[in-house]
Amino acid sequence: MFFHKTKLHCLFASLLLHTLPAIAATPLIAIDDNVATPLREIAQAFERDSTHKLELQTASAGVLMRRIVQGEPIELLISTDHEATAQLQAAGRAGEHDRGQLFAVGRIAIYARASAAWEAPSGLDGLVAALKSQRIETLYIGTLGEAAFYRAAEQILRASWIWADMRNRLQTLDSRDTTLQTLSTTQGAVALLPATLAATAPLPELGSSTLVPTMFYAPLELSVMSLDGASEEAIAFRSYLLGPQAQEILARYGYGAP
């Protein structure tokens, strides 16, 4: 009798397991810490707009690459490292036919109020001359809180051979609202800032801007790559990065469409 009941219990448990819906594992998404802030916001929006959940892992590109090559079950890599794609393909971790996809680019612009002692259309050479002659005393750096934009501005000033002279004359603006308020209320303000921010009202009405040639810095190119065994949830998030909701968030952080 006991044996008969045990068999019935086992049969019932087996049927229950087969009728319960499968619980999908939460996909692990690796994000270069240079771009962690906007990607966290995009991930939150994705979770609100879908039934999927994500697990985010942020670190430097080098650390993430080592973890992937060592077999950590990461399903997507989002990075500014151009060599990542080739390295993952060589290591056999890239998804089938996946060479990575560029989904956003951060460019740097020079912005000057109409009342400034220098005009943006004169370009980087004109800015450097005005800084050297101290016609411009303070140079604002709009970073939107992203270290990558500050590093790009530093690259530009180093390439122009004025970094050492300018370090004590720089003022960093870390948020979108602070940047817009400071540049719109400060007479004669001049700044290096993300190009999308230079095009944000009311700045175009109050001054002018020009793009810095990319020969002076490395543009911030964001790419996403699916790794072998990527789940449907991970692929859905990859597609979401190309959509209007994600692109709107990226624009607030200084990134435009490629």
Results as ranks from 00 to 15, higher is better:
Gly256Ile: 10
Tyr217Asp: 00
Gln155Met: 13
Ala109Asn: 09
Ala61Asp: 12
Tyr240Arg: 06
Ala195Thr: 14
His52Thr: 08
Ser160Tyr: 04
Gly188Val: 10
Trp163Asn: 04
Gly92Trp: 04
Tyr253Asn: 02
Leu144Ser: 03
Ser50Trp: 12
Ile249Cys: 03
Val35Glu: 04
Ala130Thr: 06
Ala13Phe: 12
Phe103Leu: 13
Asp165Tyr: 03
Pro73Ile: 00
Ser14Leu: 15
Ala159Leu: 02
Ser122Ile: 01
Ala13Met: 03
Gln57Arg: 13
Ala104Leu: 05
Gln245Thr: 15
Ala25Ser: 14
His9Ile: 15
Ser223Lys: 14
Ile78Trp: 03
Ala191Gly: 02
Leu88Arg: 00
Phe237Ala: 03
His9Cys: 10
Phe46Gln: 10
Leu76Tyr: 08
Ala230Cys: 07
Pro121His: 06
Ala117Arg: 13
Gln181Val: 11
Thr80Leu: 14
Arg107His: 14
Ala251Glu: 07
Arg113Asp: 15
Leu242Lys: 05
Gly142Cys: 08
Tyr111Cys: 08
Tyr140Val: 08
Tyr217Met: 06
Glu83Val: 08
Asn34Phe: 12
Met215His: 02
Thr19Leu: 11
Glu146Gln: 15
His9Asn: 11
Gln57Met: 01
Gln247Ser: 01
Leu15Ile: 14
Thr138Lys: 11
Asn34Gly: 12
Ala152His: 02
Gly188Lys: 09
Gln134Gly: 00
Gln155His: 06
Ala199Thr: 08
Phe149Ala: 01
Ser175Val: 05
Gln181Leu: 15
Ala24Leu: 02
Ala91Gly: 03
Leu17Lys: 02
Val105Gly: 01
Glu137Leu: 04
Leu102Thr: 12
Ala117Met: 10
Val190Asn: 05
Ser231Ala: 13
Val128Gln: 04
Tyr140Met: 09
Ile141Arg: 00
Leu180Met: 07
